[in-house]
């Protein structure tokens, strides 16, 4: 339990950091979109992102292969059972850009779109956690977590709508 709590704390930090990256990415991409369109900017970002990861995979290949060898049995067993949809994370990701462009240009504007997207995201997240869909470890959502969720959502709304 001790180690698992430490892991959770470390992973929480990783998730926070990824949020920082997300904000920076959105900032840069939205500026890039001013030179073309949101769609084209996202297309370029996906292309550049793909090249970046391929490069990273190439540079880290030795370390990765080492890791792989250590847990070959494990990985092989689990990979052969991997369902087809795990590879399709890019599809909803790409659709998001197209749909966001639609709603930002409607009466909702940027603030409304952002706020509703956060809410939609959290609703589905809770459903995935509760029901254990898509390989997620099934877990009950506790009352304290709901309070934390309300606090964070409220804070986010204040930030979004104070612009």
């Amino acid at each position: 339990m001790q180690t698992s709590n430490k892991l959770t704390l470390f992973m929480s930090f990783v998730a926070l950091c990824s949020g920082v990256l997300l904000a920076l990415m959105i900032k840069l991409n939205s500026q890039l979109a001013m030179y073309s369109s949101p769609l084209l900017a996202s297309w370029m970002a996906h292309g550049i992102g793909a090249i970046t990861v391929l490069l990273m995979l190439f540079l880290l290949r030795k370390r990765l292969v080492c890791k792989e060898a250590k847990s070959t049995l494990n990985a092989d067993a689990s990979r052969s059972l991997l369902p087809w949809w795990v590879y399709l994370g890019g599809v909803p990701g790409a659709a998001t850009v197209v749909l966001a462009a639609v709603t930002v240009n409607s009466e909702l504007a940027l603030a409304g779109t952002l706020a509703l997207m956060l809410v939609g995201q959290l609703i589905l997240s809770c459903i995935f956690d509760c029901c254990g869909y898509f390989g997620v470890v099934k877990q009950r959502i506790r009352f304290t977590e709901v309070i934390a969720m309300v606090m964070i959502l409220l804070g986010a709304m204040l930030v979004i709508y104070s612009h």
Binding site: L99, Q121, L124
Partner: peptide
Amino acid sequence: IALLNGGLIALSRTF
């Protein structure tokens, strides 16, 4: 659409 869009983000990250 905006709500659904947020859901798509969650879906993408879960995958």
